[in-house]
Design a binder for these strands. Structure first.
Lengths: 216, 216
DNA sequence: ATAATATCGATAAAAAAATATCGATTAAAT
DNA sequence: ATTTAATCGATATTTTTTTATCGATATTAT
């Protein structure tokens, strides 16, 4: 799906960025793959490989990489510089929390509006973002050329809404519902499935406890 | 970290469950690995392998698996039957959304209380969950023997709070902050990093658009 | 100036994960 | 009753991802 660079690599990139900002704040100017790896519980090998994928190849022996270069390179690689506009569909509890999430701006994402069917919130603003009726969704997407939709409707409406979004021209869906949505293969979907995450966490916990019991 | 079963497998399990409930609702009683794979855009091989990991091995040739057995088996495997209690730390926007998230109960997770430093919400309830001062966190964890913490504090307080949680006896941290937290290796951490997810989604979108431009 | 050492970056090796294959088996069709 | 077709479940293969190795090189120390 992704040409050369693996999704795991993309997943790690923002972590590097986060750590790099920390180091920068401490006054550091250079950092080696060893140190970056240590800060994030990774191996130097994977750090070096990831950075080379982002076309960052100006590390110096005995010194490491220039932190400023890394930050610029990764930000560019992740497209944080060119702002991407998005719509949020379903302004319920989770949707409202996301509308108020201030981190998105840093990542080059701007939510231009929320859409909902609830008349009591339509016409107003939530965290500064206008809430519009879903009837206006298609028009807005087409008119503004918006490519990304954040999906926070109830699970039972997820597929129908996804169909509508695709029809309106959306190219990427960030799916926060528990539903698995089917879309054409030229549409990107990212599932933010809490059940999945919780399952993994529980599994890790169970394993840890089992290990301990085995020791006693 | 996880003995035999991979985290990817755990990640897929709730997806199977979701799909199985759908099929059940439609009146189906049996399902083959081929059909389940198709519904979730996977391969039959991976479905069969995952199910065998969950000790589900009663599929019948020409028929498939009994849906009821699968649901029971996966639920048991994921520990959805034995309720796990959790505390939520940081009752801001995201924290409040999670306090109100009704899906957790299904997954065997019960948030017993939220903790915060904001006097204007302490003592009250949010979505039915009591909000307590962080000063009472340690006592509550110890007294109730709680093993899981949901971390939704501002990023700059994440590490300090994680340290406190670990000291109080927490064994698993579900980290919704953007900070990378360091914990002892016998503590499970699951990072719900929106930046990472967004990076992956953006990458997919970029790839799709590039592909299209190449065609024109 | 020379030697020692830390690090990069490319490549090789290892490990992990996903996918394919295939004999056995069961239900349905003939 | 026999044949056909679909599916499981075990195993083998392939692919992907991670980790290790190592020569080249730049900085620091002697």
């Amino acid at each position: 799906m992704n040409g050369e660079v693996s999704l795991q690599t993309f997943h790690r990139m923002p972590q590097y960025l986060k750590a790099l900002y920390e180091f920068k704040k401490e006054g550091r100017e250079n950092i080696s793959s060893v140190q970056l790896a240590e800060a994030l519980n990774m191996t130097p090998s994977i750090v070096k490989k990831d950075l080379s994928q982002a076309k960052i190849q100006d590390g110096k022996p005995k010194v490491g990489y220039a932190i400023g270069d890394l930050i610029a390179g990764i930000s560019e690689f992740l497209g944080y510089n060119n702002l991407k506009e998005a719509v949020l569909v379903g302004a319920g509890k989770l949707g409202q929390a996301l509308l108020g999430y201030e981190g998105f701006g840093e990542y080059g994402l701007n939510i231009v509006a929320g859409f909902d069917i609830d008349d009591s919130i339509i016409g107003g603003k939530i965290h500064g973002k206008p809430i519009l009726p879903t009837g206006k969704l298609q028009g807005a997407i087409e008119k503004l050329g918006i490519k990304i939709a954040i999906l926070t409707v109830p699970a039972e409406h997820a597929q129908a809404m996804a169909d509508l979004l695709v029809k309106a021209g959306i190219r990427a869906v960030w799916n926060f519902t528990t539903a698995h949505i089917q879309v054409p293969e030229n549409i990107a979907v990212r599932n933010e499935n809490m059940a999945s995450s919780l399952a993994v966490l529980s599994a890790q916990l169970q394993e840890i406890i089992k290990k301990e019991e085995a020791q006693n």
